[in-house]
Every structure is written in structure tokens, then in C-alpha cells.
Design a binder for these strands. Structure first.
Lengths: 197, 197
DNA sequence: CAAATAGGAAACGCAAGCGTTTCTTGTATG
DNA sequence: CATACAAGAAACGCTTGCGTTTCCTATTTG
């Protein structure tokens, strides 16, 4: 046990940041957003409240800075070569997110937004705006390939698939299967967006 | 001020029950579900905690018994004579509910269900099951009239319209307009369910 | 009318959480 | 090496909320 090999007892920088983020997610999963208190996060992350308050001036800021980036990295943005296979990949990405531990942030954010305008702005202005843009891009590529009609109502078309998945995830609790995804794409999305012949 | 006309100072039965229900909804609207504490409900309803505990053994039971019936009476179940006008009425009912003060219970329930299995069972087994049944009934009537194809995939068809509305209400915050409702019915639902050929 | 019920006020002891302060000391930097 | 920074432990005083008890008395019931 020489001094050179004594293990570090305190964490700094990214190591500590990751421990805090991980603690927040664990608490959301276990107890919902109400379980995310400064006391609980500090305890779970093996740190102290002054450490948290040095970074965030409030619980709301901590939640916002932790939950929103998790939602941001969930979904592939990918050009697969066809509108159909783009949509299959995107909807599968959502389904995988919902099935993952991080999916717990979905209902947490939805429940919190009505009373946290900054969280709502971050989530809708960040994550959702980005997803809308990516979906519009997907439709644009489809139009360029001649797979999607030029007068497709983009506003509705870009949300139609994920709306069904969110509905099952948040509201009805019904299963989200690969078969459902293919049905949505082949029986709803493709007919709805296809050029009219 | 004769004794016969002295105003009542205590409430009983339905009058008191309604005051409690109203207090819960007010608190959800103002503070979200986290604001619904036994202290706050008692104070808001102008009653006392023993009165609440005489009725419910826990905050969770009070929430469940208050929020779920509110969701239950939101939506018309109506036979208007055609599948199209049925769907217009139903989706307008959802839109009106979301725009009403009681709409606040939507995100409240969604946020709470992952950690309250009894609430989830009440909401999904009660409200949602009832809505699914009513939607299946609507499709059946459409089939009988020849407006809806006999092989319509009921599982997806019965949730498609409201999924889009819930998505806007809970996730994106985009407006829910009469034009949107008509677009959903005329451009998505009717083509998707219509007989082929 | 008398008796029973339960509404409402007030209080209780306890726990959890808040935001902050003080202190020690591990770790990074120059 | 010395210095600066910040991590982590511990404690603080305060607030809110919990579930419960006691008491008084309004209201209903028989």
C-alpha cells in the first residue's frame, strides 16, 4: 500500500457529473419525479448537497439539465434509403427508448411540464423541435425520391407514427411490438403519404 | 336572525364530497399532483384532515377516487348516424376536455401511474377500457352501415385519432383545432377505415 | 325530544426536506 | 513544493406534511 497506489476518495469533473446524472435517473425509475429531492440525489450519488448547489441553484434546474439530454440522445436520425425504412428505424428507436430504463423520464417529464415552464421550453424547444425537424427532413427525402407526395401535410405526417407509440406508452399501456410498428408504417404512414395515382 | 334561518355551518354528504373533489382539482390545476397533500386538500375544501381520513386511508386513494371519475365523464358516447360524424364528435369531445380545467388531470395521471399501480389499474381498466369499447362500438356501427371495411384493424383504428390529440396535448404542445380534427377524420381515419375497391 | 354521528378546530410528536454554514482535507494547478 | 479549489461530512434552524388524538358541537336520526 504505497502512497502512489492509494485509491482516489473524491471524484471531480465528468466522473462526478455522471454519478449525479445516474442517481437522478435511478430515483426517477424507482420513485418517479417526486423522489428526486436534493437529499436523495446527494445520498444516491454519494456526494453532498453543497456539491449539487454549487452546480444548480434549484431542484428544477437539476431536473431539467438531467432529464432533457437523456431524451435527446434516444432516437436515431438516419437516412436508410427509403421513407419506409426510415420510418421503421425511427419508430423502432422510439420503441426501444420506451422499453429502456431511461423511458421512465417520459411520464416524469409529461407530469412535470405543466408546472415547470422552463422544463417545458427545454423539452419542447429542444428535443421535440429537433425531432420535428428530423421528421420533416425524412419527408423531404421521400418527396425527392418520389415516394412521398409533394402536398403531404407535413404537420400531421411527421407526428402520426410516434403519436401512436406515445399513446400506448403513456395512456393505454398496450404493448408496442415490431408488428405494430410495421402495421403503422405499411398500413397508415405509407398510404397516407404516398403520391396519388 | 331567528334560529330557524341560521345558516348551516357544517356540510355533510354530497355537498362536502363535492367541495373535496373541487379542492383536489383546483390543487392539481394550480400545483400539479405534487400539490395535492392532505393538508392542502383539507385547507382548500374548508374541512379537516380527520374528515379526509374518515373517507380515504391514504392520499393515493383520495387521488384515485377523485381523478379517475373526472376523466370518465369527459367524452360523449354518441351515435350520430355516420362513422365520420361520430368521430368528429368524439375527437371534439377530447379536444374540449383537454381545453377545460379538468384537462389538467391528464398529465397528472400520466405522471403518477408508473408508481401507483392502483391508479394505473383504475384509469386503464376503467376509463381507457370504456373508451376502447365505445370506439369498437363506433367501428361496428360503421361496418354495419357499409362505411367501414369489415377487416378494419380495430386495435389500431380505435386509438388512431385520439393518439394524435393526446400527443399534441401532452408532448408537443401544438394547438388542437377544429381544422386538425377534420383533417384527422377526413384524411386519415376515413381513408384508413373505408371499404376497399 | 334524546342519542348517535360525524364535521371541524386545534394540537401533538415525528419525519423529511430545504438551503445554508462550518470544517477538514483530497486533488489540481502553477 | 505551496496554494487554490472544491468535494464531502456534519450540523443547523426552519418549514411542511404526516397520521393521530382530543374536544366541542352541528346535524341527522329514531
Amino acid at each position: 500500500m504505497t502512497p502512489e497506489t492509494a485509491p482516489a476518495t473524491r471524484r471531480r469533473g465528468e466522473v462526478l457529473d455522471e454519478a449525479i446524472r445516474s442517481a437522478v435517473l435511478d430515483l426517477v425509475i424507482d420513485h418517479g419525479v417526486a423522489g428526486v429531492t436534493m437529499e436523495a440525489v446527494a445520498s444516491r450519488a454519494g456526494t453532498s448537497k453543497p456539491v449539487l448547489y454549487r452546480r444548480w441553484d434549484s431542484r428544477a434546474a437539476l431536473l431539467r439539465d438531467t432529464l432533457v439530454p437523456l431524451a435527446m440522445k434516444a432516437i436515431p436520425s438516419t437516412d436508410t434509403g427509403s421513407y419506409r425504412s426510415d420510418m421503421l428505424a425511427i419508430l423502432q428507436g422510439w420503441a426501444d427508448f420506451f422499453a429502456s430504463p431511461a423511458g421512465a423520464i417520459g411520464p416524469a417529464i409529461v407530469g412535470a411540464m405543466p408546472h415547470d415552464p422552463e422544463l417545458a421550453a427545454a423539452f419542447r424547444g429542444g428535443v421535440i423541435a429537433w425531432r420535428k425537424q428530423a421528421m420533416a427532413e425524412t419527408l423531404r427525402r421521400g418527396i425527392a425520391r418520389g415516394e412521398v407526395r409533394e402536398d403531404v401535410p407535413v404537420d400531421v405526417a411527421r407526428e402520426l407514427g410516434q403519436a401512436l407509440l406515445w399513446h400506448r406508452f403513456l395512456i393505454t399501456g398496450d404493448p408496442i411490438t415490431r408488428e405494430l410498428i410495421e402495421e403503422i408504417v405499411d398500413d397508415i404512414l405509407v398510404p397516407f403519404t404516398a403520391p396519388r395515382g
